[in-house]
Nucleic acid binder design. Structure first.
Length: 489
RNA sequence: GGUCGGUUGACCGAGUGGCUAGGUAGCGGUCUGCAAAACCGUGUACGGCGGUUCGAAUCCGCCACCGACCUCCA
């Protein structure tokens, strides 16, 4: 199987030709969410970025096994390996079982991803479901001599590891500098070094999530789940590991260390990192308190939002920027995305109605070539969209009679847009009337038909009053050649 | 403080050593009973100062500003 895909590998800091280890199979692992609160705009970025990759690789003919985990244990609140488990903390606040918290926010995440038309992964493993495997992984690291046990906890020995390995190779850190720049951590005396990290943590008496282990009752360290589950489902060496750039250090650095220590080799061949979404130039994050949840975005129910934005608007907005760039949130940008997406869909609508000619005045094969070229270049979706918009301009010109297309080219163009817009970019048309109930729709249709009767009698006064009154009720009418369109404001 | 990245027209956002994306908004037009929508046309912008070059916004140096990571975060 052949491809011309080039992807930017964070490990080498270069664009590299993508050559799968075992074609036609591709193994893809992406860090999923820690499910302790509602999914926000930031979660949409990696989900959509790697959904695009998953869809494109599949389109190219690969059988992709896409693994995206759910972190439901072991992700701590505070200082390195100190502080409360995020999920346990939330459980205490909401008076729920930790697994109720997990279930609740996992459900929300799944619903939001579905709204964004993000395909579900092939496997969605949970950390709590792989405790045994994680313990086995810890044993392997202990056997290799790169971990030590203290008081029922097991830590990874970063200093020892870095003697024979390059800790920091992914993130560009130098251990000596990290140590020099670090402060002493209170309560972390168990560690030989502040940069050692927990593989297994002893559970304090009041800790809720706990499992028996050779080292006593405890729970796994956060970094461990990804190393363990990726290897379990994708093999000791696999093709692509993705995630947010904020996970580069320490999370992914620790993953490399764990896998190298346990298996004597690295698991990941291509590391890919999506950049952040910013709001007013600053990262959007739960911890900064400036985040907007996806439900808020879809409903418009947030002080920073001037209106609701549909899931496809969000998806388009994210795809309009390259995944390695930051993208700044604003109402203006969202509104522009909303309009742009409409233009794209209108163009595809027009395409369906084009009248064929004997000749074509522009080269559809060239457009197709450019579309592939853009995605092959490290998933450059903004450039792909620019070509698709160029195509829309041609389509509209054909519709106006200033350009022509043969029937073969029209068929080919339809196929091209279906493939790239629906299948690869994962965009779909949303009807603004879809959210309304049947009764409302029927009542509006009835009012419109009364207005049409008035219009036929050229009773513009009645006609305009109906239009104006509906406008006040938040319903917008548009008279077109094909009849009346309506939508909610 | 260390490491890395960025600074593009009104806004968002690509990209390239010379052929100077795309979207949105604005302006002009077409269409329409009016309105809206739609469509067409229209904008030589790349932080500052030097340097390399026939030519730089694109390469190099310095400066300024912004951000990310260095503690949890997608």
């Amino acid at each position: 199987m052949e491809n011309h895909l080039v992807i930017y590998n964070t490990l080498t800091r270069e664009k590299e030709a993508f050559i799968p280890l075992h074609p036609p199979f591709v193994g893809l692992y992406v860090c999923g969410p820690t499910v302790y609160s509602d999914a926000h705009l930031g979660h949409a970025r990696p989900a959509i970025t790697f959904d695009l990759l998953y869809r494109y690789l599949t389109h190219l003919g690969y059988s992709v096994r896409y693994v995206r985990n759910i972190t439901d244990v072991g992700h701590l609140e505070n200082d390195a390996d100190e502080g409360e488990d995020k999920i346990e903390k939330k459980a205490r606040i909401e008076h729920l079982e930790p697994m109720e918290v997990v279930q609740k926010y996992m459900n929300t995440y799944h619903r939001n991803m579905d709204q964004l038309n993000v395909l579900p992964p092939s496997i969605e493993p949970r950390a709590s479901g792989h405790i045994i495997e994680q313990q086995e992984f810890v044993k392997r690291i202990l056997n290799s001599g790169y971990a030590y046990e203290v008081n029922g906890s097991v830590y990874f020995d970063v200093v020892k590891y870095s003697r024979n390995n390059s800790y920091g190779k992914l993130s560009g850190r130098v251990l000596e500098e990290l140590i020099a720049g670090s402060r002493d951590l209170e309560g972390a005396e168990e560690k030989r070094n502040p940069f050692d990290f927990a593989l297994w943590k002893k559970a304090s008496p009041d800790h809720l999530m706990r499992w028996p282990s050779p080292w006593g009752e405890g729970y796994p360290g956060w970094h461990l789940e990804c190393s363990t589950m990726s290897v379990k489902y994708l093999g000791e060496v696999f093709d692509i590991h993705g995630g947010g750039i904020d996970l580069l250090f320490p999370h992914h650095e620790c993953e490399i260390a764990q896998s190298s220590a346990a298996m004597g080799k690295e698991s990941v061949r291509y590391w890919m990192h999506n950049n952040m979404i910013t709001i007013n130039g600053q990262k959007m994050a739960r911890s900064l308190g400036n985040f907007i949840t996806l439900d808020q975005l879809f409903s418009g129910n947030h002080p920073a939002l001037e209106k609701p934005y549909s899931p496809m608007t969000i998806r388009f907005f994210i795809l309009q920027a390259h995944y390695r760039s930051t993208v700044d949130f604003s109402n203006d940008a969202l509104r522009a995305a909303e309009k742009g997406l409409q233009r794209l869909f209108k163009g595809m609508d027009t395409l369906k109605k084009l009248k064929p000619s004997d000749t074509s005045s522009f080269d559809t094969a060239e457009l197709r070539r450019k579309c592939y070229e853009s995605l092959d270049d490290d998933l450059n979706s903004p450039v792909l969209l620019s070509y698709l918009f160029d195509g829309v301009k041609h389509i509209n010109s054909v519709n106006d009679g200033s350009e022509t297309l043969t029937s073969d080219d029209i068929v080919s163009l339809k196929e091209l847009y279906d493939t790239f817009v629906y299948k690869i970019l994962g965009l779909k048309e949303e009807s603004s009337a879809a959210g309304s109930d049947k009764l409302t729709r029927e009542l509006i249709e009835m009012i419109i038909s009364l207005r049409q009767a008035a219009r036929e009698k050229k009773d513009w006064q009645t006609s305009d009053k109906i239009r104006a009154d509906l406008r006040k009720a938040g319903i917008i009418l548009k008279d077109t050649n094909e009849g009346v369109n309506w939508e909610f404001e």
